[in-house]
Every structure is written in C-alpha cells, then in structure tokens.
C-alpha cells in the first residue's frame, strides 16, 4: 500500500469519506474565526459549556425524529440558545459570574441529555450523539454544515468591528453604542450554530474541539486577528483530514480522532511555534523579541 493510497485512497474510494472531508473543511472555515474570538475573549470554557448544552436538544430531536438530521439539529440549536440565554439572564439578574452560571446550566443539560438518550435509545445511539460518526454526514448534513459556515462568515463580517471593540474594551462599546449586548448575543448564537454543525461529525462532547484547539494553537504562530483566524481554519482542516484517515484506517470514532490530531497540533505549537512557544522562550529568540518590544 503506497502513501498515496493511505492518504487519498479512502477519499477517492468512498463518498462518505469525501463528504466528511468537505464537511471538515466547512467546519474549519466557520470554527476558525469563531474559536479565535472565543480564545481571545477568554471564553473557552463557555464554548465547552455550550457544546454540552446542545446535547439534550439533540436528544429530544432524536426521540422525536430518530436519527434525523433536521430534528436533532433544530433541537440542538434550541437547547444551545436556551442555555446561552438563561445563563446570560442569571448573570444579569444575580451576582453569579457568567462562567459559573454557564457551568451550572451545561451540567444540567449534559445530565438531562444523557438521561434522555439512555432511556429512549440504546448505547450505540448514545455513543453516536456523544462522539459523532463520519457515516452520519450525508448530503443533507453537508448542506447544513456549509450553510452554517457561510452564515457564520457573513455574520462575522457584519459584526466584526463592534465585536472587536467588545473584546478589547467592552465598557467603551457600552458607553458609545447601546447595541453591545446584541453583538454578544449574536456571537453566542454563532457559537451555538457552529457547535451544532460540528456535532454531526464530532459528537456533542467533541464539537468544541475543532473550535478551541486550532485557535489556541494558532496563537503560537501568528499575532494578528485575521492571521489567527486563517491559521485556526487551516489547522482545523488539517486535523480533520488526518483525523478522518486515522478513523478510517484504525476503525476509530471520528470525533475523538479529529480532536486528538488537533490536540497534537496544539502540543506541537506550544513546544515549537515561532511565537512564545517553549522553544522560542528558552532558545533566546523569544527573549530578544521581548526586548525589542
């Protein structure tokens, strides 16, 4: 078996592998910039919380419509938005901090979701929902993921400037523009949408992986917002490609495979990236750059 066969054979041979690969590309395009903003806003854990929050909605959709994509996606979006909204409400009305109220709601959602699936489905269904399956990416799923990626990029283009100000100096946006809260809400909605796009391939537990890990890794390579987003998307797609191959050849679930490859990229970046990585900090190059700054 040649390297070509190993790397491209599965995609040439099987339609579901091609669809999964295209799905990963669309996911990476949307998740790259979204993840970059999540990391910069120190909202990584919130992304995690929202990804778990999608589960009970997807489970409800599963109970009603079986393994039906529209039902599970709609349920996931509804549950994710509900948790985002309720956590925001609790944060605004009580002294509880936003991360704590998100954690509370996601734990409740996760428990509820697992309970729903385990009482109304079987273990295979549960595993599928939690960890995803490349086989699930049919043409309908592909259209959904592509539509979400398109919508995300277009929406980001519209809210880019206020979103940047909201990250950099939220007080200024509040004082200058009454719509700061709207920007935050829209952004959270985009996070939920991308998580729902991701859970078909990656499962609800892993959906956030393709969002956070490439974005965290990109920080060790570049510094500008646009380049961070681009590198995140590239790393995300690369992880998808390699992860799918691993999943195919070794018969592993696709979600954990993809996320583990992204994790390897993250470790490699922490160790060897050109900016602020351990190598850069301890080889002298980093300290020279700091002095220059």
């Amino acid at each position: 078996m040649t390297l070509y066969d190993l790397a491209f054979g599965p995609f040439a041979e099987f339609g579901f592998m091609r669809r999964a690969l295209v799905g990963c590309l669309a996911l990476a395009l949307g998740s790259g910039p979204i993840g970059t903003f999540l990391v910069i806003r120190r909202m990584s854990l919130m992304g995690d919380a929202l990804s778990h929050a999608v589960l009970p909605g997807a489970a409800l959709g599963f109970m009603i419509g079986g393994l039906s994509l529209p039902a599970m996606s709609l349920g996931g979006v509804a549950a994710g938005l509900a948790v985002a909204f309720l956590s925001g409400l609790v944060t605004r009305l009580t002294p509880l901090r936003e991360d704590a109220s998100f954690a509370a709601f996601y734990l409740i959602s996760l428990a509820l979701g697992v309970l729903l699936v385990s009482t109304h489905g079987n273990n295979v269904d549960l595993l599928h929902l939690l960890f995803g399956s490349i086989l699930a990416i049919d043409n309908a799923a592909l259209v959904l993921i592509g539509a979400i990626a398109t919508l995300s990029l277009l929406s980001l283009a519209v809210i880019y400037r206020p979103l940047v100000v909201e990250c950099f100096d939220p007080g200024f946006l509040r004082a200058m523009d009454g719509r700061g809260g709207l920007v935050h809400t829209l952004f959270l909605a985009l996070v939920v949408l991308n998580l729902v796009a991701g859970f078909q391939a990656l499962g609800t537990l892993m959906a956030v992986g393709l969002m956070m890990l490439p974005a965290a890794a990109a920080r060790f390579w570049v510094r500008q917002l646009w380049s961070l987003s681009a590198v995140s998307s590239a790393l995300g797609f690369g992880s998808g490609f390699l992860g799918l191959l691993l999943s195919y050849h070794l018969d592993l679930p696709s979600g954990p495979s993809i996320v583990l490859v992204a994790g390897l990229a993250y470790f490699a970046s922490v160790l060897f990236g050109p900016r602020d990585s351990l190598r850069a900090l301890y080889s002298g190059a980093g300290s020279r750059r700091r002095e220059a700054a």
């Binding site: 910069i40 806003r41 519209v158 809210i159 400037r161 206020p162 940047v164 100000v165 990250c167 950099f168 100096d169 939220p170 007080g171 200024f172 004082a175 200058m176 523009d177 510094r223 500008q224 917002l225 961070l228």
Partner: peptide, 28 residues
Amino acid sequence: PQHAEIETRFPISVIQIVLLGHWRRIGW
C-alpha cells in the same frame, strides 16, 4: 472609566484604538 476594562493582550494597534474615538461617525 476607572482602570478601563481593557483586554491589553488583544491584537489591536495604537492607531486602531484612537480611531475608535470616531465611533459615532464610523459605527459598525
């Protein structure tokens, strides 16, 4: 505001910050 709640690690340049003062004229 006091100790403006500024995210000082955000990748934004000095001129971009100053340009934000034009918010009423440039908006979204």
